[in-house]
Amino acid sequence: MDNHRPHPLVIVKLGDTFEALREHHGDFEHWIAAGLATQTLPILVIDPRRGDALPAPGTLSGAVVSGSHAMVSDREPWSERTAEWLARLVAHGTPVLGICYGHQLLAHALGGEAGNHPNGIEIGTVTVTLDEAAAADPLLQGMPAEFQAQVVHLQSALRLPEGAVRLAGNAHEPVQAFRVGDKAWGVQFHPEFDAEAMRGYIDHLAADHLKPGGIDPATLRDSVAATPAAAALLARFARIAEAHDAA
């Protein structure tokens, strides 16, 4: 008889979406949990910003680190505490997926650098191109060589940690995905965003970030499309976490 009780798959909530989106569409943790679609692992949401304890690496099946409207380079105490914890998870071999802020924080946590992108904001539905290394990557193998993804970021992983493998990029952002070790990934794009969320971000950022930069929000909004390949990464990661827990 198998008495194994599955360890939780943790969503580390490091930010909140805009209130108008949250009221009608839920928040980051809801979007991530829906994409993970795990039937075997309990989902646990923790928020280091409010002082939630960060679980010991051996008590988890995996961790997904959310996006945030904060900036990694501000080195907020909750962010630095989470970065130290991420380094412990990676050293332990616990599966990790960092999304946008989480992607940049993972790079920072392991000795890389996160900061302002020299060419400013990247936002909307964009094309991501896989590197050759992705063909043998446990998370990305079998994905289309090019796929559409939702993005919104002002900062980037400017320098990857030593030993990291770049897995994907595009013309604006050289590092759309990377892996460190066997089971830790960062993705700059948002697999949890659907088209409605992306249009909501365009609407909210139009006045302060798009129009001043010469970007037409209406044209950008019209170009938003569904991104099923990118969205599938969350379920792919859940399968990796399930396998890790079973082992």
Rank of each mutant, 00 (worst) to 15 (best):
E242K: 09
V224K: 01
L233C: 10
L234A: 04
A149K: 00
T38M: 07
H92N: 14
A243W: 09
A107D: 04
W78K: 05
A197M: 13
V96Q: 07
A70D: 14
P118G: 02
A53T: 13
L234Q: 04
L44R: 14
V128N: 00
A63I: 10
Q39L: 14
L234D: 01
A207W: 14
N119F: 12
T17R: 11
W185S: 02
D216K: 11
S156Y: 03
T40A: 14
M198R: 09
H204P: 13
P161F: 12
F178L: 02
E122P: 03
H153D: 00
A184E: 03
G163A: 13
N170Q: 01
C100W: 00
H153C: 02
I99S: 04
K211Y: 11
P118V: 01
D182P: 10
P118S: 03
L36A: 06
A135D: 06
D131A: 01
D74V: 12
P118T: 05
A231N: 05
N3K: 13
Q104C: 08
G111L: 03
G115E: 09
I99K: 05
S66K: 05
G213W: 06
H7K: 15
S156Q: 12
E196H: 12
T38A: 07
I43H: 06
G26L: 07
G111N: 03
G67F: 01
I46K: 02
Q39R: 15
A114L: 11
Q141I: 05
L160H: 03
K211F: 10
G15N: 07
L36F: 08
P48L: 03
G111S: 04
A231F: 02
L234Y: 04
Q155T: 11
S61R: 03
G98L: 04
L60R: 05
D208G: 15
G115N: 08
V65T: 07
H244S: 12
H204E: 15
R166G: 00
I123W: 01
R81L: 12
A232L: 11
A241V: 09
E113Q: 13
A33I: 08
A225I: 09
A226P: 07
A91G: 15
E192K: 00
E173Q: 08
G214N: 06
I202L: 09
Q141T: 13
A197Y: 04
L234K: 04
H153Y: 04
R199D: 07
S66G: 05
D194E: 11
F28A: 02
H24Y: 11
L9Q: 06
W185I: 02
M1W: 13
G115S: 12
L36W: 05
D52Q: 11
L167Q: 00
P55I: 07
D216L: 10
D27L: 10
A114E: 05
F178E: 01
V10N: 06
A53Q: 14
P212L: 06
L110A: 07
D137Q: 03
E192L: 01
A37C: 12
F189L: 01
T125C: 11
F237I: 08
Y201K: 08
D222V: 11
G214E: 05
A246C: 09
H92Q: 13
